[in-house]
Design a protein around this nucleic acid. Sequence first.
DNA 1: TCTGACTGCCC
DNA 2: ATTCTGC
DNA 3: GCAGAATGGGCAGTCAGA
Length: 748
Amino acid sequence: MSSSRPSAFDALMSKARAAAKKKPQSEASPAKKRKTQELVSVKEVENASLDDAHQVFDKKSKQENVVKCGDNVGTEVLANGCKEGKVNLSLDEKLAVKKAEAVSLDESIAQLKNKPANFDPKKAAFWGEGKKVPFSFVTRVFDAVDKESGRIVITEIVCNMLRTVIQTSPDDLLPVVYLLANRIAPAHEGLELGIGDASIIKALAEACGCNEAQIRKQYKDLGDLGLVAKASRSSQSLMRKPEALTVTKVFNTFQLIAKESGKDSQEKKKNHIKALLVAATDFEPLYMIRLLQTKLRIGLAEQTLLAALGHAAYYSEKRFKPPANIDSPSEEAAKIVKQVYSVLPVYDKIIPAILTGGVWDLPKACCFTPGIPIGPMLAKPTKGVSEILDKFQDMEFTCEYKYDGERAQIHYLENGSVEIYSRNAERNTGKFPDVVSALSRLKKSSVSSFVLDCELVAYDREKKKILPFQVLSTRARKNVMISDIKVEVCIFAFDILYLNGQTLLQEQLNVRKEHLYKSFEEEPCYFQFATAMTSTDLEEIQKFLEDSVDASCEGLIIKTLSRDATYEPSKRSNNWLKLKKDYMESIGDSLDLVPIAAFHGRGKRTGVYGAFLLACYDSSSEAYQTICKIGTGFTEQVLEERSTSLRSKVIPKAKSYYRYADKISPDVWFETTEVWEVKAADLTISPVYCAAIGIVDSEKGISLRFPRLVRVREDKAPEQASSSEQVAEMYKAQKHTQKHYEDDDKDE
DNA sequence: TCTGACTGCCC
DNA sequence: ATTCTGC
DNA sequence: GCAGAATGGGCAGTCAGA
């Protein structure tokens, strides 16, 4: 190999050498090889849990089994098992049942990998027609999806799976879709599992008869609680299993878990999980746990599911014909389902509509409904005004202030009822009774119904000043009474999606804005239209950006006005761009900080550190003060390099001159060796970090909002990191903070 | 009755 | 929220 | 460029246990 090879090649080689070196030390492999690595670990787990009898069957006899028994036998046995709570089979017989089942399941999953055009949903069902869909079917599909990396193939597998359900057990389609979507109810219904890692670890520990420390250790090693569940289960693998889990059983149990509340509710939730775990086999524990964590991480999420649902609906349709002059009916169907979901994100309505009326009429059956939230339109980040002019060349566009508050979609119905939804479609009506009561006063009398898109911003009405987001977030959230409200808000309206019974979604923004302006009365401190300006002049826009920051805003949102300017629900489309100062290179708050500790990575970061604890340096006390954690901005290569480098700097416990709160307990502590440049949007007073403690606040330190890595400062030593004084100055220099201080001075 | 751990949801 | 990555 | 999956600070609400 000559030295004239491209440097990328050298990088690859050194990476390969590093990986090869690590293996014997049983270090985890690079994050990049996640899929492969996971396969290995799953396989190992599986092998470990195989009982001897299981292995008696070789592959050949498995296949014979399929051919001889066919689906019917397997299903009948399974069905019997379901009906009779007690199964009076000998151990051998039970193993045989298990075998037949597994074999047909394997065959079923193999069928799903056919191209949709060559797929026969009847051949893939290994359970009886009209019977409950086994949970194992779903988890095996998850496994099949996990092994694929291409979205197209994943969509095909899920599509075929859904067709199988539609063909065989259409009543189960809804719960199947809910599991695939990893949801338990529409977002606006506010149903929560109330289960996190801690509860799951407890349940796992009890279910496998070990202590929580052991589970936590495995979690660190495997990087996934689901894999821990899969591994742990083996300790009970010889115990008699209750009847096989079904999709509805699992889904209903999830809902039960969500509905438990009050005294001993944690205990009850835990028991539900344990009961499911005891009945789980094969891939079921793995994915059951991941579902409970709401982290499927198999490369399948909402958008892919919706596409697959569209495809499946198209292929399952014998009764209805697609519209003429359509290139690809399946892609068209996917588009329809996505569009419909963005406007009515309620599977409980969409699934029955697909089953009864097919996809082509779906937009008629499921359209925007006042009172039900639609996906808010999102904006894409841009790095500067020139990028905006570039993207919007020859387009009419307008610039608006980006307010630092809470996105709100306000529905006002004909009957006067009001609902307020968050950016994520959560119902927030009970949090903003003040907003609700103000609406009828703010709308003009000609207005009988509307859906308003706006930002609710904390507001000091005495001083007529916008307050920071951190103040807004202290508002009470549930069943708030107007008389108890301590933080007032001002509504900054910027769009209207529905007015007097008419949808405005398909109108261009300039039309919608006209409707907005003529439908509401501005009332300072209560309801204002977002400050806007239309210009194509770079310097004018730059100035407007400065103005927005001076006005305590985050920056600008730039929107097309008259062309490509319809409201695109849920889309981070190119029609809306956001421009924040900290996006721009060499602008915005940037600090040089020292990694002093780290946390083990999870998922695709298994084997490297997932996040680091950063500190600034206080020279007067010669102490390193924690300021934030950081976990984004790393390329895989940089994360690998930093992890390797810092792994050799691990110390048994924190240095005496590290200042940190006990609440933070990293997995490892480091010597101070490196300096990293970190960018942030804001500096905030923190309840847990210690930076500049005693300067701005006597007890609290300072932290960073939206921290991310910019680069490693090879040229700096830890003592040259940003100082506490610098941090404090940066905090004080912030617009809203500054004003706060001026006001304080006046008061005193 | 208070507190701390945990969770979900804002950004 | 921000950022990175495979397709 | 999409879609997905890593990860951030910090708040209120809930519940278990002191």
